[in-house]
């Protein structure tokens, strides 16, 4: 039997048999080389309570070349692209080792959620948000977990309707409303404030003129 197939089959079986682990791997179609992994968000983080799904593609030369993984579930995290789900993690690139398995890689992703590395970001805007105001970042991350990963969400988040684009962007309603009152469309204001990282202490550094300028672009 093909060594790659033998290994992948064994890995999937091992994962199924392991009742204690919260990591799940399942097939999407007949191919054993395109899989879906999932794990619960780690406790004590904004991702708690959510269920995160991962798209797994096993390359031809696996396990000698790293497996390709990306988030299917939208995640608000500095090392995960908020648009595409692409992940910045060393073991998925040059630090890959053939002894790593799908399961251990998924565990690494889970622990990546515990310990963001904003200095090596995949999503620069999210990383900026994290650096400026961790509290506000966590609120947004919780909100994303709530609406995209089925998490419980924080008290604040529960009060909001799901799909609130101001909260998704990690902004405050009062700030957005202030510029909307000036006659700018809401979507545009959200976009501009997100680009400028109009959050927490950073607001002091951004004069209203700068925001208007960005809005008029």
């Amino acid at each position: 039997m093909d060594a790659r197939l033998r290994r992948v089959t064994r890995e999937i079986a091992d994962c199924k048999n392991d009742k204690t682990s919260s990591i799940k791997i399942e097939t999407i179609d007949e191919s054993p080389f395109h899989l879906k992994g999932s794990f619960p968000g780690p406790e004590g983080t904004p991702y708690q309570g959510g269920n995160f799904e991962i798209d797994i593609v096993i390359p031809e030369s696996y396990p000698f070349q790293p497996v390709k993984m990306k988030f299917i579930t939208k995640v608000y995290h500095p090392n995960v692209s908020s648009a595409s789900g692409a992940i910045c993690l060393d073991i998925l690139k040059d630090a890959w080792s053939p002894v790593l398995t799908l399961k251990s890689t998924l565990i690494s992703l889970q622990s990546l959620l515990c310990s963001p590395e904003p200095n090596d970001p995949q999503d620069a805007e999210v990383a900026k948000h994290y650096m400026t105001s961790k509290a506000s970042f966590e609120e947004t991350a919780t909100y994303w977990t709530h609406i995209y990963a089925g998490g419980p969400g924080s008290k604040d988040a529960k009060q909001l309707n799901s799909g609130d684009d101001v909260a998704i962007a990690g902004l405050e309603h009062t700030h957005v409303d202030r510029f909307v009152e000036l006659g700018f469309p809401k979507a545009k204001v959200v976009d501009a404030l997100r680009r400028l990282n109009y959050r927490g202490n950073n607001i002091r550094n951004i004069p209203d003129d700068r925001v208007i300028e960005e809005l008029l672009k």
Partner: peptide, 9 residues
């Protein structure tokens, strides 16, 4: 070791 992988590996 790398912080990403401290917990469970």
């Amino acid at each position: 070791s790398r912080p990403h992988s401290t917990t469970a590996r």
